[in-house]
Amino acid sequence: MLDVILFGAFPYVAVVLFVGVSIQRYRREPFTYSSLSTQFLESRNLFWGSVPFHVGVLVLFFGHLLGFMFPRQVMLWNAMPARLFILEVSALICGILTIVGLVGLILRRARSARLRVNTSVNDILVYIALLCSIITGLWVALSLRWGSAWYTHTIVPYLQSLIVMQPDIQRVAELPLAARLHIISAFALFSLFSFTRLVHIIVAPVPYLWRPTQLVIWNRDRKTTSGA
């Protein structure tokens, strides 16, 4: 029964919260969408936390996403043991970068009086959720090696079954504890997402790369009004 709740129902709750609340918040409270940077209050230690964390977590996120979208190609890549080894070691290095960065960020926040007064309950929740995901992820990487090989016939079919609304719980219910915890913490992160500063991910400034340099906004149609 617990498995059904955790692996059959919880993922849907997480996705509904992730999508629904994010959109609703964007429409109703656009002012609250911010990266909530604290570099202004403390800059030096931030570098050693923020940069490794973001680099690591971005590579891991897109690695997970690509693995889910192209399992066949990943299997082909892994056909040679040397390449499998390179993939796994790279992923592990990113995992270590992420945890080092995150622990650095947490220590930085805990040590600075200026940052402590500027820390909300939400900030702490984000740290806990991220820590859970990363620690369980590293646990999987270290205890259940070659995840980039075995995930194709466990996690990928499970996620696909979720998408077609027929959760195949058996695919994951019998995985070792580390893997199951990693999955649950990932969905927990998704459900927290839209209530926290994590929303800055979905407003990442990608259009900056191609938008016009200057922005001039006219209140009225300058060619037609004010003429007479």
Partner: peptide, 27 residues
Amino acid sequence: SCPSGALYKRGEDGIVLLNQERCRGWR
């Protein structure tokens, strides 16, 4: 420089303003 396009120049009078609802704090 604004990655979010929150800063803009008002066409009618040239006043440079920052839309608080579009700013994401990239600094």
